[in-house]
Design a protein around this nucleic acid. Structure first.
Lengths: 209, 209
DNA sequence: GGCGTAATTGTTCAAGCGTATAATAACCGC
DNA sequence: GCGGTTATTATACGCTTGAACAATTACGCC
């Protein structure tokens, strides 16, 4: 009786694969679907290996959550151009693939439901949330200043909270029931709504009537 | 060796208690914390009784989700007064206790993460979501008509999607990190934002400056 | 090209899971 | 009060879980 042959992978690659497998399991079956054995099967290894890289199941879940948050926020943090282009890109990125899809929501909701239980997850969550809102607040501040508008901290804060809420809510609606909306309907509604909130057009020059 | 003495409860009361115990378990420990044994302990009965009232664990979870959705939407469905008062009350109700608190979010997120897995939960979810958005759309339609504004179906739909998103998003922010906001700050932001979206004041007469 | 290291496997363990079922105690009609 | 009905308890079963650990294999190094 011989053993399976196997491949000895570099640590970073193996850790990445295991986290990826974890996310696949969660997306398909929720946190309950992410058992150590199922993750191992998905990654094409045996269950014992997971404990070689992660001290516990909680640990791998925390690392996986870090990846989820990074994916939800990294693209929006790398927008370029003038303030108007950056704000516009920020809005669009958060309401289109790959940020907005049912898999993202499934992963996000699975972890959110554990944030109130696991203190370490709560810390990871808080950091990601504040980063996101701060990024939006700064975008707004620069945009308002560029347009010669009131860019006082109080107004930026209130606008950031409102727009952040709007984006979160539309993201949620789109992820939960994308088929209820026309192609890019949510993006149009978001752009029009945010224009109304700020009181300044943000449409790109050529599509702005 | 004698048995525990027990109380024979009416069916509706017992079912209610078991569902309530289920929600407590989920709020405290997520779906994973809601085991048949844990629910029984919380309800002060033994595990076997749960199977006497519910055909399976899936079944009691579905019934529990119905209760969660009902609580999130029932109050907003019973607003009274003229269109402006109703719209205003609708907004406030959805952003204050008992709709907006961390327990509500914890329950909501736990179930949302299973909506994509369990078809029955998905049906329950969809019904609740559409009811909510339709109620908002009708409120808007009546409000706009009363104000002599454009109340065309297209505009009402777009406004309902935007405002629904905004309310969802602010609800989420408030539930997730209520301590980051001043007292009633979210309600103020919501009212001001929705006024900007609609283009008509909705503040109550005495607080409307 | 043989050796040492450690990544990976395979197996085992106790605990907890959802479910099934027989025994029992509470309540209702008479 | 008594007997029948059934809500409720108590126990058991088979399975899966996270974890632990010894055996084994792949690979870097000299």
């Amino acid at each position: 009786m011989s053993r399976r042959s196997f491949h000895r992978a570099p640590e970073s690659e193996r850790r990445h694969d295991l986290i990826e497998a974890t996310l696949d399991c969660i997306a398909e079956g929720g946190l309950e679907g992410a058992t150590v054995r199922q993750i191992a099967i998905k990654a094409g290894v045996t269950a014992g290996l997971i404990r070689h890289y992660f001290t516990s199941k909680e640990h791998i879940l925390q690392e996986a959550y870090r990846v989820v948050i990074a994916r939800l926020t990294e693209k929006a943090g790398r927008v370029t151009g003038d303030p108007q282009e950056r704000l516009r890109a920020f809005i669009i990125i958060n309401l289109t693939e790959p940020v907005a899809n049912s898999r993202s929501l499934s992963l996000w909701a699975s972890f959110i439901s554990r944030v109130s239980v696991d203190a370490e997850l709560a810390a990871i969550h808080r950091e990601g949330y504040l980063n996101f809102r701060d990024a939006l607040e700064e975008l707004l501040s620069e945009f308002l200043a560029a347009k010669g508008q009131d860019a006082s901290p109080g107004r930026c804060r209130a606008l950031a909270i409102a727009i952040n809420g709007l984006l979160d809510g539309l993201w949620l609606e789109g992820c939960l029931a994308g088929e209820l909306f026309e192609e890019s309907e949510l993006v149009s509604i978001a752009l029009a709504s945010i224009e109304a909130l700020i009181g300044v057009p943000i449409g790109s020059p050529d599509t702005d009537q």
